[in-house]
Design a protein around this nucleic acid. Sequence first.
DNA 1: AATGAATGAGCATTCATTCAT
DNA 2: TATGAATGAATGCTCATTCAT
Lengths: 204, 204, 204, 204
Amino acid sequence: MRSARSLTTIRPPVADKRGAILRAAIRVFANNGYFNSKVADIASEAGVADGTVYLYFKSKEEILHSIFDRSMEEAINEGRKQLAPITDPREKLRRIALLHLERLGSDRDLAVVFQVELRGSTKFMEEFSAAGFAEYLGVIRSTIEEGQQAGVFRKELNAKVAAKILFGALDEMATNWILSKRRYKLTPMVDTVLDIFFNGVSVK
Amino acid sequence: MRSARSLTTIRPPVADKRGAILRAAIRVFANNGYFNSKVADIASEAGVADGTVYLYFKSKEEILHSIFDRSMEEAINEGRKQLAPITDPREKLRRIALLHLERLGSDRDLAVVFQVELRGSTKFMEEFSAAGFAEYLGVIRSTIEEGQQAGVFRKELNAKVAAKILFGALDEMATNWILSKRRYKLTPMVDTVLDIFFNGVSVK
Amino acid sequence: MRSARSLTTIRPPVADKRGAILRAAIRVFANNGYFNSKVADIASEAGVADGTVYLYFKSKEEILHSIFDRSMEEAINEGRKQLAPITDPREKLRRIALLHLERLGSDRDLAVVFQVELRGSTKFMEEFSAAGFAEYLGVIRSTIEEGQQAGVFRKELNAKVAAKILFGALDEMATNWILSKRRYKLTPMVDTVLDIFFNGVSVK
Amino acid sequence: MRSARSLTTIRPPVADKRGAILRAAIRVFANNGYFNSKVADIASEAGVADGTVYLYFKSKEEILHSIFDRSMEEAINEGRKQLAPITDPREKLRRIALLHLERLGSDRDLAVVFQVELRGSTKFMEEFSAAGFAEYLGVIRSTIEEGQQAGVFRKELNAKVAAKILFGALDEMATNWILSKRRYKLTPMVDTVLDIFFNGVSVK
DNA sequence: AATGAATGAGCATTCATTCAT
DNA sequence: TATGAATGAATGCTCATTCAT
């Protein structure tokens, strides 16, 4: 009996296999790139058999999508929670920027997947754009509009374009941080970005 | 005389095969993505045999690199020429931004390759970053520094970070333009970007 | 009970896939030559998918090596067993020669691979020479030396050269047998070869 | 006129291009093996353009055949000349063996082609066997028969098999010499081979 | 649910050969 | 004769996916 039981118990109870596979995929994609990563690599990194991957994901591509979806969902939920009590548009944008860089800065592998691997296909980029990203940009945009309404940001500015500018700046900070050989903290970049951005969009 | 002439004209004057292959590759990569593009597709698009591709390029990957190299070289040469006579830092930056968006805006396929396909591999991104891109960022940065020296831009700003912000904003304009379903002119975005950026970095 | 058994038997018992592939390769190589044989041919001859070949062998070349290795190992094991009880040097050599021609004579395809395909590359020949072949020649040689010690073979002869002569003679018998259009028994050739060889090396 | 003339003369007068290509092929085949040798390699080694090769040979395979044919023809002509004045069967065999090893021993590359490259295809081996080789073996055989008639070689021996034995021994000497790392003279091996062979076949 | 052996479509690259000059 | 750019058929190997156990 004991032997039978131990046989089952020897293997660590990888309870959340889906999660394990997803985490493994992030690591593998970050190291080799999506197209150069083999499903077998992901499986072995996750400690499961090749076939098991297909019990949780329909295809290799779906894994990439799931990484994006899950991360965006987490980020958006966390974002909503943190933004809820804030009313000052400037403060809101600061929080958004901070969350943006904190999230990427705290998980380099995930950041690589987001900044590099997810960009490698127009197909994905289009969906990406259509899905979570548009929503994200929308949040920035309406916060800017709030600021315009409140009279702190210049009314003549196109809020959508301004939102893209802020996003583009943050995005570039993240990409540069990943590619840089030097190791520095990503979050502090928020200050310069917002210094320039706020000066740029504020009413004098 | 005519016959002699027609002899030369019979076969379509694919004189510049290397160029033809490069142009074909841009189209094919833009449509299918680098990894989903077959060398055979490029060859047939260029109107040459599969093997001919390998007379001009060592590998599929080298084609991608060559696209980048050739385009960057052109852009840099053109840039130098246009920037030479300009002394005002603001004007210089405007010219840079204009060239940036004009170039991408005038060749959607090339833009797709630059904004999407070239981003899909850390390996390439690192080289990219190391090579032309670093130089490009350097030009923006030193122009900003000139502005700081001249007393038009705030001295306390980190010029390198400011350069990244400007680049990131322009880059995002380009990426959004590509992914957008709506067809609009890319170049005019320069105005908003610079409006905000200049207000952001200028001494009051 | 029977059903359980039949479950196992339904799929043709290609139990030993590795062995099946090896046997198929011998047939294919013998018919087309190594360089003209496609991995796909081997796979289909073995009744497996192309990719399956690569589950058992790293490359086409490794298949050729494995054929050699496995056959040599078998031959050497069988040889050791049969030679062990024999003490008379002449008798030993006769046994060696017999085994040599019996083995090749009983599997024409294998013989073709050994006599023809394995010869077609200096690279392989060198390894071949370095590996099993040198050992094989060494056995013949030391048996001849035993005979010299025992006073039955002429002491002034270079045993190594004598060994090569015997091997060369046997090898030629095998090659001729393969290439001949006529079908005859290979083993009996041993008698003439040894008649001449023994007369040639013996003390009068 | 002078200019016209010099134009023709500038290029070194590779008068015998066919021969040059053949010699180049021997070198290339010996170094890389027939299947790994590219026609382009042969052309460049011969100092001609790729296409030129096809003005003298129908195909890559024909080059290999021509190497064999030309060498055999030379060998046979030389052999006939040298054997003509000899009447003693023993002396004749000695001359044959000597010519055999001298020829191979004096041109390692050619030897490699003969001992290794030409063996790599059953197809060729069969033609080889049918063509020059059968004739060669026939000469040895009839010389042995002369010896039997003359009462110096044992009448009960099968002359054809005896011929193969001698050939096999010489062939093995050549192959071993090629593959050996040590550098030694090939021709002296004739002595041991014939010592053993003559003792083996002679009437006591 | 889990396994991992088996599958087979897919593709970059090579190279013998041709042919316009 | 000679050239060498162009051709395009040919193939070893990979890897996402399936499925019998």
